[in-house]
């Protein structure tokens, strides 16, 4: 698993990359009340805003961590945004992306480096 400075996690699953937000991020956000997901089939480039999360406190964006095509989104989050707080590292993944260039993942942190990053 890889981690970004934007507090996203990336997990390689067969030929796609599953993306979610970290437990730390979900705790900082507070109770999540709304998630807006991209359309499957959307081509995205790294650092493009692809999702909106609204918590009881504020709205934040999720950025595409790599270039590629969104192949699947987690529709369950639209109906039950609270899952993001309950299981951010598991059930509450946001989207699956087919990487255009898998080497973009190499720049991201491993778990130990991420834990150091959040202190």
């Amino acid at each position: 698993m890889k981690f970004t400075e934007e507090h996203e996690w990336l997990r390689v699953e067969d030929d796609v990359v599953v993306v979610g937000i970290t437990t730390h991020a979900s705790e900082q956000l507070g109770d999540v009340v709304f998630v807006e997901l991209p359309e499957p089939g959307t081509e995205v480039t790294k650092d493009e805003e692809v999702c909106v999360i609204e918590s009881v406190k504020a709205a934040s964006d999720i950025l595409a961590p790599i270039d590629g095509e969104i192949v699947e989104v987690n529709e369950a989050l639209a109906d039950d945004p609270g899952k993001v707080n309950e299981d951010p590292m598991g059930d509450a993944w946001f989207f699956k992306i087919k990487a255009a260039d898998a080497s973009q993942m190499d720049d991201y942190m491993d778990e130990a480096a991420y834990n150091d990053f959040i202190g």
């Binding site: 507070g30 109770d31 009340v33 009881v56 406190k57 609270g82 707080n85």
Partner: peptide, 9 residues
Amino acid sequence: VQYALGVMK
């Protein structure tokens, strides 16, 4: 602004 329960609870 909140305690351990969180805003919603």
